[in-house]
Nucleic acid binder design. Structure first.
Lengths: 139, 139
DNA sequence: CTCCGTGCAAATAGTTTGCAACCAA
DNA sequence: TTGGTTGCAAACTATTTGCACGGAG
């Protein structure tokens, strides 16, 4: 990991007042080190850590992703039921989900915006609107 | 359960060539007996069965809901990650999800339709578009 | 009579948690 | 020093599965 990536991760943690431990720095660097948005599962991030030569327990990956979400640095995206995805973009935006290989990506901006919002039941307000466009390989 | 409800359930099964066993009839009747659309979890449906004085094992509720989905009678909706919802409406439509109590309902027709679909990656086509509007109580 | 369907209990997968050791401040 | 963090293993929850029995056609 480059020093620049490390710094990005570091600042990202600082932004949420999270103590920069070795494990958090390792995960943060992998998540935002290159400035790209990323969609990971606990498993995939854990694998990435090992690939990078670091060592963080799977439980800590889970707990840390949860902490990042609580801190508003990431958001959890539910597409599949069997596992959770975590997105480094915390704002409300649509996703592509490839059923073929279970990968999640951002859908191109703007295109999938809702035409209008439905009447919300009395006493409620909209917390978030999840849009997941499921894709399959063209046959 | 009224004879009319029973007949509705019966026809519903027939439509998918599913053998009308006692258990399937019981579930089908609870699901579509009154002609209303319904959003259930395996647990909630199992509870409804017991409340109705019938007896179907939880495993069978799971297996049967899965069978109904495979047959195209229902669709599985993923909103929460921790559990699956099953919707008696099998077509593509938006949902309200009340975070407060975990209930799922249909959003009013038409309002939440997408303005346009984004450019889909080469070699893929849209299988389904899931729209879940998360609601929280107004504070 | 023949299979599909069912029930039970055990297996599984993803995720969380209790607790002792650790480390950043 | 000291309270927040981590690792491990065990706990948990939702769901699926193997297998013997039972019922629909």
């Amino acid at each position: 990991m480059t020093p620049e990536a490390l710094e990005r991760g570091s600042k990202w943690l600082a932004r949420a007042d999270l103590r920069p431990t070795r494990q958090r720095l390792s995960l943060a660097t992998l998540l935002v080190g290159d400035g790209q948005d990323r969609h990971v599962t606990a498993e995939s991030l854990h694998a990435a850590v090992e690939r990078a030569g670091d060592r963080v327990s799977l439980a800590t990956v889970y707990n840390t992703l949860r902490a990042f979400c609580d801190a508003g640095l990431m958001q959890e995206v539910t597409v599949d039921g069997s596992r959770s995805y975590f997105d480094t973009r915390a704002d409300d935006h649509p996703h592509f989900y490839m059923e073929e290989n279970g990968s999640l990506t951002d859908a191109p901006a703007g295109a999938a915006r809702l035409r209008a919002l439905p009447d919300v039941p009395e006493g409620y307000e909209i917390a978030r609107v999840d849009v997941v466009i499921r894709l399959r390989k063209t046959s």
